[in-house]
Simulated scan of single mutants.
Amino acid sequence: MFDKEYSFRGSHAEKVDQLTAKFDDENQLFQKNKDVLVMAPIVGFLYQRKSDVTSGEAKKINGQQVSSIFDDLWFNYRLIMLLDKNYEPDFEKRVDKAFRYYNTDKAKPDEELFNQYVRGGVDVLYEKLIEKSTSPSDYLKHLYDFMEELDERYNKTVDIENIQELCALARK
């Protein structure tokens, strides 16, 4: 899955284009499309936002760039498969999805779920950072507000048991 070209299509391609565009002479929120691809699935999962493919022009990330972020994408995929209790309530099955089924026919629905979170994350990033911005100071203010919102929503509610459980899995 993470060893070939990746394409954003339609409205998501347009949003990625705006997320990587410079908002003044020298600053931009994301330098490359691949940077959006790394961040988007986590944001989509945290906000429980999924989105289907839209038709239209494609914005591609070539296979070499995708392979350069393979470890990050693979980590994000496994993390989402392990944590998404709504998608799979059974812990052992989540472990199978995260580590055993990847890149097999059994993983096709899981890989599509991951891609839905990627697209949902692009939607959230666009809404939070770009949509209401009209000046360079707006972009920075919205970025700060978004980071602060993430901190308030997630860093204060981290359950120590979840961290210990994930650390134990990582050691195996």
Rank of each mutant, 00 (worst) to 15 (best):
Asp110Tyr: 05
Ala98Pro: 05
Ile69Lys: 15
Asp90Glu: 15
Val118Arg: 07
Asp138Gly: 06
His12Tyr: 02
Arg100Gly: 02
Glu131Gln: 14
Lys15Asn: 03
Asn115Ile: 04
Tyr101Ser: 13
Ile80Asp: 00
Arg94Pro: 09
Gln64Ile: 03
Gly56Asp: 07
Asp35Pro: 03
Tyr47Glu: 12
Asn27Ser: 12
Gln31Ser: 10
Leu73Val: 12
Ser67Phe: 00
Tyr139Gln: 07
Leu29Phe: 01
Asn103Gly: 11
Phe23Asn: 04
Tyr6Asp: 14
Asn115Cys: 05
Asn76Thr: 13
Ala40Glu: 00
Asn86Thr: 09
Asp72Arg: 11
Lys15Trp: 01
Glu127Lys: 13
Gln18Asn: 04
Ala21Ile: 01
Lys97Leu: 05
Asp17Thr: 13
Met81Ile: 09
Ser55Arg: 08
Phe75Ala: 14
Glu88His: 06
Val16Cys: 06
Phe2Val: 11
Ile130Gly: 05
Ala40Val: 01
Glu112Pro: 08
Phe30Ser: 09
Lys50Thr: 15
Asp35His: 15
Gln116Asp: 07
Lys50Phe: 07
Gly10Glu: 11
Tyr117Glu: 02
Val95Lys: 15
Asn27Trp: 00
Ala107Pro: 01
Glu111Thr: 06
Thr134Ala: 08
Tyr139Arg: 05
Leu29Cys: 04
Asp72Lys: 11
Ser7Gly: 07
Phe30Lys: 06
Pro89Cys: 02
Met39Val: 14
Tyr77Trp: 00
Thr54Leu: 04
Lys22Ala: 12
Phe8Gln: 13
Asn103Ile: 03
Pro109Ala: 06
Gln18Thr: 01
Pro41Met: 03
Gln65Thr: 14
Val122Glu: 13
Thr134Tyr: 01
Ala58Ile: 08
Tyr117Gln: 02
Pro109Val: 04
Ala98Leu: 09
Gln18Leu: 05
Asp84Leu: 04
Gln64Asn: 05
Tyr102Lys: 14
Val66Leu: 12
Asn76Trp: 00
Arg9Met: 04
Ile61Glu: 08
Gly120Ile: 05
Ile69Met: 15
Asp25Met: 05
Glu111Tyr: 09
Arg78Gly: 12
Gln31Ile: 08
Ser11Ile: 13
Glu57Lys: 11
Phe30Thr: 08
Val66Trp: 12
Thr54Gln: 13
Asn33Tyr: 04
Leu82Ala: 07
Leu19Cys: 04
Ala107Cys: 05
Glu112Gly: 08
Gly121Thr: 08
Tyr101Leu: 09
Ala21Gln: 08
Ala58His: 07
Pro109Tyr: 06
